[in-house]
Design a protein around this nucleic acid. Structure first.
Lengths: 141, 141
DNA sequence: TATTAGTTTATAATAATTATAACTATGGAA
DNA sequence: TTCCATAGTTATAATTATTATAAACTAATA
């Protein structure tokens, strides 16, 4: 709680009740929630929360560099809360987005073909570990 | 024209007038159009074309592996028509998506952390060559 | 107390995409 | 030729994520 407030303050974000709760949810959940997932979680604690607040808060967080926006799924934006740079796996079976610790060869190159690179976004499509082991378990039956 | 028909036939896609024209537009344009851009181009040649046809056709093309869907821009889907695997640059200045010939170290790894990898999507965010040189020209004035 | 800025909420507007059903063209069978 | 079936196209409506707008609320301060 105190930590969350400090995190917000360090980014010049006024730590309101709603913002603290949203950050808390982002910390607890690892699979890159969309606005609706966050909203549903929030409802359990703040039944009067508005979806607009979720949108506003996340866009403030993104502006201040607290979260990264992932455009991996075509339907909606996903939000990534983790300090170190990393890539993602979009599981085509269960739909989860999972962190993958992989560096790209060009990770620190700031210039390619004359273009100036500011950010690297990479992701894999495939089937996650959990779905694979579930498959195996099914076959053995 | 004949070539376009052959390309469609080789993928088991019946070469209708509309489909040929859409493929033609994809061949001519390099910057990863969205549905609306393609639709606007089509209107010049087929004024009665429907946007639904564009959606249908592109989803057929994607199914048959003729195009790849890019979820780089948050607003809408972009379509990539090019044979060889490559990455992209999203220019934050002009909004174009530009092909970048760069291989990732893990490009042929099919397994990471126990996950099965089927496809790699990578893109960079930055400022493209053209926008950069435009900046320079402005400064010199 | 009154005021102000910042935050949250409710509501409406926008826009990409999908769903549905009607229409059209084509090619084969009778 | 005429009829029919199928695939493809079109028009229209429905869905849904996101943004815009304005009103209501909160907390701090003069």
């Amino acid at each position: 709680m105190e930590d969350l407030i400090k995190i917000l303050q360090s980014r010049n974000i006024h730590p309101s009740h709603q913002r603290i709760k949203i950050l808390e949810i982002l910390e607890k959940n690892e699979d890159h929630m969309n606005v609706n997932m966050i909203y549903e979680e929030l409802l359990k604690e703040i039944p009067t929360i508005s979806k607009t607040t979720v949108y506003n808060t996340l866009s403030t967080f993104a502006e201040k560099g607290l979260v990264h926006c992932l455009t991996i799924t075509p339907e909606e934006m996903r939000y990534d809360y983790r300090a170190n740079p990393h890539h993602h796996l979009l599981c085509t079976r269960c739909g989860r987005i999972i962190d993958v610790d992989v560096q790209c060869r060009y990770a620190d190159t700031m210039e390619i073909d004359g273009h100036c690179i500011e950010e690297i976004q990479g992701y894999f499509k495939g089937i996650c570990r959990e779905c694979l082991s579930h498959d195996k378990a099914q076959k053995q039956k």
